[in-house]
């Protein structure tokens, strides 16, 4: 029982104060300069960071759950994603144009940005580290089925795997398939089983145990 352990050895504290590299210095200097010149204040900066951090996959999950329960919304989401999200979900898409791609029995979609790390932050929050790694970015285009397998996602060989390389001005949301056995669930309950990875396409939605 961990609680009864005589915890008498010391640990180094977990610190986020790693030595700063060139780009950290550049960012800090630029930030100081902009604040000094009155372009924005330190409070504006903090508020912006908080706004970014408030975005999470829960927003995307609500969109998916709405699409599963409302055919009309789903059709609008697939044809004019940005407007549907803005007008019907009241989520501010900021500047991004969104392309929603639907998983079906015939097609499985997966998203990658090989050039950098383009990601629909406004509906999924900040991307996971693996999404930004060279390994994912290079391998997801070249061997998508192998990469998906490493995520525990085995795509039937008969289904088409369609990779989306998010190279420019579009941002992508995968509309996963609604799992069997969840018919008739309320929107809120459905949103609870939609995870971040299912909206990037590295996983499929499973009904909650």
């Amino acid at each position: 029982m961990p609680h009864d352990d005589p915890h008498d050895h010391s640990h180094a504290a977990v610190e986020a104060d790693e030595p700063q590299g060139y780009y950290q210095h550049l960012a800090a200097a630029t930030r100081s300069l902009l604040i000094e010149k009155g372009v924005f204040s330190a409070a504006d900066m903090r508020a912006m960071i908080e706004q970014i951090d408030r975005r999470s996959p829960a927003l995307g999950a609500k969109i998916v759950a709405r699409a599963w329960t409302d055919e009309g919304f789903k059709a609008r989401l697939l044809s004019r994603g940005k407007q549907a999200i803005k007008e019907e979900m009241e989520i501010d898409p900021v500047a991004a144009d969104i392309v929603v791609v639907e998983n079906t029995a015939a097609v499985h979609n997966v998203v990658v940005c090989t050039l950098c790390s383009c990601y629909p932050v406004f509906i999924l929050g900040r991307p996971p580290d693996w999404y930004k790694s060279y390994a994912y970015r290079s391998r997801a285009v070249r061997d998508p089925r192998g990469v998906l397998r490493e995520f525990g996602t085995e795509i039937d060989p008969a289904r088409e795997v369609r990779v989306h390389d998010s190279t420019a001005d579009m941002r992508y949301l995968v509309l996963p398939m609604q799992p069997a056995g969840t018919e008739g669930w309320l929107e809120e309950r459905l949103a609870g089983i939609v995870t971040r990875d299912t909206m990037v396409g590295t996983a499929e939605v499973r009904p909650a145990e």
Partner: peptide
């Protein structure tokens, strides 16, 4: 992979 597998890319 499946010969029907595709990749979509945005190109100017």
């Amino acid at each position: 992979g499946n010969p029907n597998d595709t990749i979509d890319i945005e190109i100017y």
